[in-house]
Amino acid sequence: MSLPYTDKFEMWLREHHNASYAPSMEAYMRNQFPFLGIKNPERVALTKQFWKEHGFPKADEGVQIAQELWQLPEREFAYTAMMILVKLRKELEKSHLEVLEGFVVTKSWWDTVDIIADHLIGYYLQQFPELIPASVEKWLVSDNMWLQRTAILFQLKYKQKTDVPLLFDCIRRMADSKEFFIRKAIGWALREYSKTDAEAVRAFVATTELSPLSVREALKAIHRSELK
């Protein structure tokens, strides 16, 4: 009897663990998660090799495998789960939003949440824009900092398609947060949009009470362009 796909991959990756790298990788993530000690370039190469030999899971099977990998303790499995979901994102259906939110609120830290917010939920909501108002409202009023960060960041790659009133409203509502990751997200979102409309961002920053960190991050790209 052959092993399930997830079990095969787990065994495959564990065979390449590197105890000498694991402590520094864990320390970088403030020792919140154990690591196998496999650096990203090697992990990506190993994963692609595994897919070549065992095939790539499709649609619902792939989502299920990503969820199973997410439950494994070492962080490298979570990174691979996100790789699978990014490759499957064109196949995601409306019903998968709850799955994506589940990834945001479990084992949460910036290294996973930012990829999910930008590359997965951001892409997903472009396919199902009718879900945006209710989803963003739910995230903003939640007590979960990572869902709130997602509400601010999901439009990072939208450029001219950015819903600017929504972005600015999200930021205003979160502007008094004392959380570093919220303040940083505000600055990051504004900085990215400033590459599309610098004047809009400049005016917003000038008329909105933001933390010094958010302001500094928001105006970085504008200041760089002024120095050229």
Rank of each mutant, 00 (worst) to 15 (best):
2 S>K: 10
5 Y>C: 03
6 T>K: 09
6 T>N: 08
10 E>A: 13
13 L>M: 15
14 R>L: 13
16 H>E: 12
16 H>Q: 15
17 H>E: 15
19 A>Q: 12
19 A>S: 13
21 Y>P: 02
21 Y>A: 14
22 A>V: 11
23 P>V: 13
24 S>I: 14
24 S>R: 14
26 E>W: 08
26 E>V: 05
26 E>Q: 15
26 E>P: 04
28 Y>W: 06
29 M>S: 06
29 M>R: 11
30 R>K: 15
30 R>M: 10
31 N>W: 06
33 F>C: 01
33 F>R: 01
34 P>G: 05
35 F>P: 00
37 G>Q: 03
38 I>S: 00
40 N>S: 12
43 R>P: 12
43 R>C: 11
45 A>S: 14
49 Q>R: 14
50 F>N: 04
50 F>K: 02
54 H>T: 08
56 F>L: 01
58 K>S: 14
59 A>L: 04
61 E>C: 04
62 G>V: 01
62 G>K: 00
63 V>S: 03
64 Q>V: 09
66 A>E: 00
68 E>R: 09
71 Q>E: 14
72 L>T: 05
75 R>Y: 15
76 E>Y: 11
77 F>H: 02
77 F>R: 00
78 A>R: 15
78 A>I: 04
80 T>C: 14
81 A>T: 02
83 M>G: 13
85 L>T: 11
86 V>F: 10
87 K>T: 04
87 K>V: 00
87 K>H: 11
87 K>F: 00
89 R>L: 00
91 E>Y: 04
96 H>T: 10
97 L>E: 00
100 L>N: 00
100 L>H: 00
104 V>Y: 00
104 V>D: 02
104 V>M: 02
105 V>D: 08
107 K>A: 03
108 S>D: 07
109 W>R: 03
110 W>N: 10
111 D>A: 15
115 I>Y: 06
120 L>T: 00
121 I>Y: 02
121 I>W: 01
122 G>S: 10
124 Y>R: 04
124 Y>D: 03
124 Y>G: 06
126 Q>K: 13
133 P>M: 11
133 P>T: 07
135 S>W: 09
136 V>E: 06
137 E>T: 13
139 W>M: 07
140 L>T: 12
142 S>H: 02
142 S>W: 00
150 T>E: 05
153 L>W: 00
157 K>R: 14
158 Y>W: 15
158 Y>C: 04
159 K>M: 07
160 Q>M: 09
160 Q>C: 03
160 Q>L: 11
160 Q>T: 13
161 K>T: 05
162 T>A: 09
162 T>H: 10
164 V>Y: 10
165 P>W: 07
165 P>G: 05
167 L>K: 07
167 L>H: 06
169 D>Q: 15
171 I>L: 07
171 I>T: 08
173 R>A: 07
173 R>E: 08
176 D>N: 11
177 S>T: 09
178 K>Q: 15
178 K>G: 11
179 E>Q: 14
181 F>I: 03
181 F>K: 01
184 K>G: 08
184 K>S: 09
184 K>L: 06
184 K>T: 08
190 L>N: 01
191 R>P: 02
191 R>V: 06
192 E>L: 08
193 Y>G: 03
194 S>T: 09
197 D>N: 15
197 D>R: 04
198 A>Q: 14
198 A>T: 08
202 R>H: 13
202 R>A: 09
204 F>D: 08
206 A>F: 05
207 T>M: 08
209 E>N: 13
212 P>G: 10
217 E>Y: 02
217 E>T: 06
220 K>Y: 05
222 I>W: 01
223 H>F: 10
225 S>T: 12
226 E>P: 05
